[in-house]
Design a protein around this nucleic acid. Structure first.
Lengths: 214, 214
DNA sequence: AACTCTATTGAGCAGATGATCTTTAAATGC
DNA sequence: GCATTTAAAGATCATCTGCTCAATAGAGTT
């Protein structure tokens, strides 16, 4: 009933011979492209289109992943894993360093990791989907980053209104929103994101009367 | 080849007679349900499922909307229209009122409008989709709200670092992020959103040395 | 060069999906 | 009560989509 079917590989667009990779390598190749693909079009992207971009047949995908959901799980894993470095909780609570520097260091590194189109979009797609990995990530973020950060702020706050968790979320959200604007809404990148992050942090510290050197 | 086909109406779940509404009313009913439906499952939600929720046949939808895209456009219109009240630019620049009150008034009203699951999620879905209405909305927001707001801040700022557009975006983003957490990531609602908004505003004003009474 | 192993292709199925068109029946006017 | 109008249902199409499986051919071994 078809007569045309798929027709990739065997020479294809470029002259590259793309057949018969070692399975581990092919699997990785598929995941890498799937991350780009799903980040661009969403999790409802079709396997045939993904296969076309890879220059392989659609059926090959199911040789490496039993179902599309399993492929998406691999994409989640690849994207979520390693996004929260395990040494941050320690560094954020190192009181030998002024809080301002700790915050600057954290958000400089963190924004470098998350202000990236693939991460931002897949995070948002999976969030809208209610993916459990997304919820776990946010809980983890709260536990190991934001909550400690509240404690650090509390330890230094000089105002009579004590810092609340919501204040930390506000700091965090204001910074993350830079990436949302850029990668979800595709607005132009702000001139100097690092500077905006620094200002957000200073705003936060000033509100609680925390000196830059504390 | 079917033998079963769709089978809604004619009594259905509840005893309500649902046939033969006036076209304008039916059209509105479809749009209303479509907003809820697409907000929940995304724009790739299937017309058959939407029809099932409405208790009508899938083919009826195409009696009111030529294509699914046309229905989605109607959803966009319903959701986006009236979200930015036209009198805000005026009220935001009324210098007889302290800036703090103007900001409080604006964000109290604005958050009441946008901290709503349907809006938040359809806005995000359409943003990820690159919908032109989404881009126009953000441009409009920048032009009629945020840019004037920068001018107002500038007029009152007492610090030597002048306010920048990015500062306004940071204020805005930090507030909007409250709704994102709640409706996109489905985290629990903060205890008192209004209070958090007030604190975000005060942080902003304090950073530029603007007195609450100014 | 023949042989083996298995990564990859090619063909196709079953169910889903947007859309079309004919038929049915609810409301209205006479 | 009957005819007319048209909202809604019912049937169905062409295509798409995730997935399966037998056939093919690339690369290493002998």
């Amino acid at each position: 009933m078809d007569g045309q079917a798929e027709r990739p590989a065997s020479g294809g667009e470029n002259g590259a011979i793309r057949k018969r990779l070692p399975p581990a390598e092919r699997r990785q190749q598929i995941i890498d492209e799937a991350v780009r693909f799903f980040a661009e079009v969403g999790l409802e992207g079709k396997t045939r289109e993904l296969a076309r971009r890879l220059g392989v047949t659609q059926s090959l995908l199911f040789n490496y992943f039993a179902t599309k959901d399993e492929l998406i799980d691999a994409v989640y894993e690849k994207v979520y894993i390693g996004r929260l470095s395990p040494d941050w909780p320690e560094r954020l609570t190192d009181r030998s360093v002024p809080l301002r520097y700790r915050l600057l260091a954290f958000y400089t590194e963190y924004s470098a990791l998350i202000f990236e189109r693939e991460w931002m979009r897949i995070f948002m797609f999976s969030g809208l989907d209610g993916a459990s990995l997304n919820r776990r990530y946010l809980k983890h973020l709260g536990d190991v980053i934001l909550h400690p950060l509240l404690a650090e702020t509390n330890a230094l706050a000089r105002t009579n209104t004590p810092p609340k968790m919501e204040d930390v979320w506000n700091l965090h959200g204001g910074i993350v929103y830079i990436g949302i604007r850029q990668h979800i809404y595709r607005m132009p990148e702000p001139p100097k994101p690092q500077e905006e992050i620094a200002r957000a942090i200073d705003k936060y510290l000033l509100f609680f009367g925390i000196d830059p050197g504390d």
